[in-house]
Design a protein around this nucleic acid. Structure first.
Lengths: 196, 196, 196, 196
DNA sequence: AATGAATGAGCCTTCATTCAT
DNA sequence: AATGAATGAAGGCTCATTCAT
């Protein structure tokens, strides 16, 4: 019956959409209140502050990214497969957009301590990708590339997707992740094996 | 002696730094005025509006990116070399940061018409990268990858650099561009040495 | 208990007085806020903008003028009587000053569309006066004067009253309207007694 | 050669036009500077302040009105003729618009002492009109109307002209003054003689 | 005579937040 | 749980005026 929780969810969801479309700064509490049919003041029964909302969204988002990647890394699949699945999950989340844009673009507006926390979680995400690559190199699946550089390249490519991805556009998430995965594997010297 | 131009340059430079560090929205005209030792009202001798400042920075930045890439694309180097140089130039600009962060993060705050203009110029940049890849495929230097996907991957990886690059840090721009270039060429099936 | 409406009324009334005494441009939102004991930002719970205030006042005022004249024109009194009553009502409104000065002096500061609306309503007022005169001529009560010219003369004379009328001064509104009415009727060749 | 005087004249003339069209408050010193091809700061070689400009315009305007009326009142024409000429002169000045609108609408923005001076001169104008009427009554040309009321009515009608007069429109100044003069004379009981 | 950089006060407006009801 | 009036600080911007050159 947690009715309060429902409303809270509604508010966060409205904020996700508004922050995504207009940006954190350009979205007012009034906008959010309007979106959920409440008065501005009433929002404060559910939140502490506007920034609190940003924090929740960023946290939810990066947590979901980490959760998915953690599961992949924890599996006992071969390295190439892990990478492909990681890319696929990433692309899917970017295309659905939970709070990706907000996390990526607006988390600089967080309070230092919260920003640092979120930052730590995104570093964690990067480390997981590093793990995949480092393990793959160790097992001989990948070439001996610079792990950090390869990670940054792959991460950057993937985090850029929301900037050009058009929901309902020409490309399906699956096609994107296939192309990206193939490109990355090739970059890691692991693509030729698939042709053998 | 063009004193006025100097002050104007000083203001824009101050804005570049403040926008980069704190974001466009979190930077006030007062902040900029303080940075250059003027009253905030005095800034308007040099600008039409705060947004005008954003526009100038975004325009300067994307123009510089395009200028450099244009020169590379227009040369008669082999495709792989063009790509390497493009990546090198891009990394260098990101590491120096003209207004890269502002262009990439805040240009959504521009007026629709100016945003569209800037957007058009960034599209132009992407097209130039596409050209390099498409030409390389045509000449047989690169594998027959999906040009658009490869472009997006490379562009994303490169545009992400400013997020993790630390001036004066462990990595020099040259090392980054070498690693990235090698990774991309390998992704395009053109890694030097692999053909030997 | 409609407390909100009361405050709104209070604000508009304060603005009427301030605009009248100091003019629209010379009155700041701070002045209005001070007059009603609010912070200036708080005014915006009741208004959209300063100009909105001007619009409301102009609209209220011209509407009241039109309402009264409409009633007189719609009656079945003889033409001379209609004119006398119109003048009487006009003088009374000018002497009480709802927002007459603001309407007459400052409505040029309105946004084009609102200015046009107000302008249309003042034209309506003039048309009603024209109707009285034209009907009076048709019925033989008035001389065959140029209707437009007579209307402008009468309107001008009446709209000038607020410039010299002193509340609590020597002249009562009733005396003014009696003198003006007599002057106008005489001008229209309908002076009572002249026909005796 | 008084070159400085020429420029000064040019500035005042530009201000007259701008004040008339946009109002005193809505006209900036920049607007005036632009109109005469000077920098804002340079205007202060010719004026003390913006308000000084308003004062000069108001003073010039009311002085011209007084000069003309003074000449008419000082002549030895019959009362009716004086009134007709006064109206004619007034209409002509309103139609040409020296600074009539500014004088009538914006002189409230003057400093108290200057406002009072201008106000005194407009009172002088009214007194001259009163003189015409009072003399006409004394000589038997006009009915024994309330002099002040008749003056206010005539003055109001005439001062309203600029609000509806359209240069190059249907009505020529001469037609307006003829209609107005006839209306006023009739109001003063002096029109019948013209039909004899 | 003219410039144009600079001032500084003030303007209208926005907005996250609080709180009595 | 919800309201909505009110705050207070800040924001971008305008503008008449000054003054060294």
């Amino acid at each position: 019956m947690a009715v309060g929780k429902d409303k809270e969810r509604e508010i966060v969801d409205a904020a996700v959409a508004l922050f995504r479309d207009n940006g954190y700064h350009a979205t007012s509490m009034q906008d959010i209140a309007d979106a959920v049919g409440l008065q501005k003041g009433s929002l404060y029964h559910y939140l502490e502050s506007k920034e609190d909302l940003l924090y929740r969204i960023a946290l939810e988002t990066i947590s979901e990214y980490n959760r998915q990647l953690e599961a992949i890394v924890g599996s006992d699949l071969p390295g190439a497969e892990k990478l492909l699945r990681a890319v696929d999950a990433h692309v899917l989340m970017q295309s659905r957009d939970v709070g990706t844009v907000t996390l990526l673009r607006d988390s600089g507006a967080l309070r230092p301590d919260q920003r640092e926390e979120i930052h730590g979680l995104t570093r964690r995400y990067a480390e997981l990708v590093e793990t995949i690559i480092a393990d793959g190199i160790r097992s001989g699946e990948f070439r001996a590339v610079d792990v950090k550089m390869a990670t940054f390249a792959i991460l950057g490519a993937c985090n850029w997707i929301h900037r050009w991805y058009a929901a309902g556009g020409r490309l399906h998430p699956g096609e994107i992740s296939a192309a990206f995965g193939e490109f990355f594997l090739s970059g890691l010297g692991a693509a030729r094996g698939s042709g053998d």
